[in-house]
Design a protein around this nucleic acid. Structure first.
Lengths: 129, 129
DNA sequence: AAACATATACGAAGCTTTTCGTAGATGCAA
DNA sequence: TTGCATCTACGAAAAGCTTCGTATATGTTT
């Protein structure tokens, strides 16, 4: 189930802040763009119907929680994106991202470390061919 | 101008094969999914109106060409994607992609080389802060 | 020339996404 | 208890995407 861009905004708020009411989510969203309260409400209701969110009915308002995890969601999104935008070539995507976005040295080091591990694995499987 | 998923399919065909008629594009698309001829035609007409494609009117049919380059398009898509899916963190995206997709040793080496260059740059700008 | 194959143009239906207005319920305050 | 603030529910409009049917033009074949 692919969340839309608006739904993704809401998921990010819930992932960052944990279970929240519509009001809380709306306040966060308002910081970065113009959006009506009932718009946020409607979005979250739809996401509830879709099974993206769960909710607990408190006395007056509802508290919503993201059911889908950030990890799973991002993995799915990446899969689709690699497919549609890069015809399945993940390494092309990586090259593109690294080329056009700045990263701190710490981040680059982190990526390098991961890369070293992967390189060992690739080496192993290459030898077996 | 963000191409839709369907439009991206067509762009990929044109990028790979060069200027093509609707029939040629439709035949390529048919290999991977069910799509009517007039559907492909309509999509390409819309893309022409949007300025994504140019066309040359031959005697009987039209020959379409991608106006937007693959590089520019992918750069734009990556920008949007980093923003919406990873809240602007390009390195998170890279880590995610590297973790979940296999790459050959050659590809990994290529990425590593790029990374070394970037690391030098990051080092330089770090020192100036 | 008549019939046929194949091209484009066009309109429109069906769906999804985003947005908001309005109505009705409910807790709280005066 | 009456009214105010605030909540949910609901409907619906506007826009964009995808799809295809039908009409019409135009080469090609017989």
């Amino acid at each position: 189930m692919k969340p839309t861009d608006s739904e993704l905004e809401i998921l990010h708020v819930l992932w960052a802040n944990g279970p929240s009411t519509v009001r809380q989510v709306h306040e966060k969203l308002s910081q970065s763009r113009d959006i009506g309260y009932t718009t946020a409400l409607k979005l979250m209701q739809i996401m509830y119907e879709k099974g993206l969110l769960s909710r607990e009915e408190d006395s007056r308002s509802h508290t919503y929680t993201a059911i889908v995890s950030q990890e799973d969601t991002q993995r799915n999104l990446v899969d689709r994106f690699v497919e549609t935008a890069f015809r399945g070539s993940a390494s092309k995507l990586v090259m593109q991202v690294l080329g056009q976005h700045k990263a701190s040295r710490a981040e680059l080091d982190e990526i390098k470390n991961l890369l070293n591990d992967l390189n060992r694995d690739a080496g192993r499987s290459d030898e077996s061919e």
